[in-house]
Amino acid sequence: MVPLSWYIVLSAIVFSIGVFGFLARRNLIIVFMSLELMLNSVNISLAAFSHYLQSMRGQILVFFIITVAAAEAAIGLAILIAFYRNNPTIKVDEINLLKG
């Protein structure tokens, strides 16, 4: 039997890697992928809690997170394409129109 804490630790490590990628990468596409990584790590811990507490709610929440992640990826990439058309760069540190 694998202890519940192993899943939580794995989830925390993957989430932190996602946070690092989100804060450090310049490529906006990889920033989005780090976001997906973070959502996936949360899904792991929700599914683990759902199994160990013998409840279905964690798994239902995973469905909703996957739904919202799909919507977020579609909208985010559409914004990315619309932005790239006006200003051909996807480097995060060069997207500074609001900086004043």
Binding site: A12, V19, F20, L23, R25, R26
Partner: peptide, 18 residues
């Protein structure tokens, strides 16, 4: 370059969180 200038702070935040 693949990382922004502030990448050490991102790394520190990730490690602290974990």
């Amino acid at each position: 370059k693949r990382f922004q200038g502030q990448w050490p702070f991102g790394l520190a935040i990730g490690v602290v969180l974990a």
